[in-house]
């Protein structure tokens, strides 16, 4: 069964179970995403992929909204652009993101999206929270200052590796990713040191220890079934 619909005045066709995001991507229509990662269960948490659908009361997250026949979708309205920039601003002020000294400078999805969506500074006040860094693992480190709580690491560790070493602690603005019973990563008995979490992290929050500033590039051949490699550099 095929469905037909319109995205930004472009007629497109889609499979019955496709999400708006999948159809948009198939047709080279850009919808920004951060928490979403093809191959992991979508959670609809970052809200960057919100789109307008005619007849809907509110905005719809493209990553989890299934297409319907005759849908009319708008992905680039002024309002959506404003909201998306604000979401990025929120992520920047929530943590402590200093691109100039970050291992992922130049390969960071958050940075790339900010460039692409025209977020060049924050109107919101920086919260400057005190956050920690854990480098107890022999190969990897986690810098909570750079974590945007997309929970990709939690999902890949649970859904693909099956270890479920990662999860989230607390709630709200106090949330944080943790390993096991909130013990240092290096002491974890469940971690297989597979490195999948590091590969799917959109920022420099999870990194390889040997990497210096701007050296933390993702490996193209690693986990081919996970679409980890964004063309972050090409669309700057």
């Amino acid at each position: 069964m095929v469905k037909t619909l319109r995205i930004d005045d472009q007629d497109v066709s889609a499979g019955t179970d496709d999400t708006i995001l999948q159809v948009a991507q198939d047709n080279a229509i850009f919808i920004p995403t951060l928490c979403n990662l093809e191959g992991l269960k979508p959670v609809g948490a970052c809200r960057l992929c919100l789109v307008e659908v005619e007849g809907y009361r509110g905005l719809a997250p493209a990553c989890v909204t299934r297409v319907e026949e005759g849908m009319q979708i708008y992905t680039q309205s002024e309002r959506l652009q404003t909201y998306r920039r604000m979401i990025l601003e929120m992520l920047f002020v929530e943590g402590n993101h200093v691109c100039a000294v970050c291992v992922s400078n130049g390969t960071c999805e958050l940075q790339a999206l900010a460039q692409r969506l025209g977020m060049d500074h924050s109107h919101l006040e920086y919260r400057n929270p005190a956050k920690s860094v854990d480098v107890s693992h022999y190969r990897f480190g986690v810098d909570h200052n750079r974590c945007i709580l997309c929970a990709r690491c939690v999902r890949v560790c649970d859904e693909i590796e099956g270890a479920h070493t990662w999860d989230l602690l607390g709630r709200g603005i106090q949330s944080q990713v943790i390993t096991d019973l909130n013990r240092p990563w290096g002491e974890s008995k469940t971690c297989t040191s597979c490195g999948k979490c590091v590969q799917v992290c959109p920022t420099g929050a999870l990194f390889k220890k040997s990497k210096a500033v701007a050296e933390m590039e993702k490996e193209h051949e690693f986990l081919p079934y996970l679409n980890t490699i964004r063309e972050v550099r090409s669309n700057g």
Partner: peptide, 25 residues
Amino acid sequence: DDEALHYVSNSLRVPLSQTYGVATF
């Protein structure tokens, strides 16, 4: 305490981090 969380996790076969996540949520 950690001992109890360990025991409950292992008995119910819930990952440690998930138990901790629930206990702090």
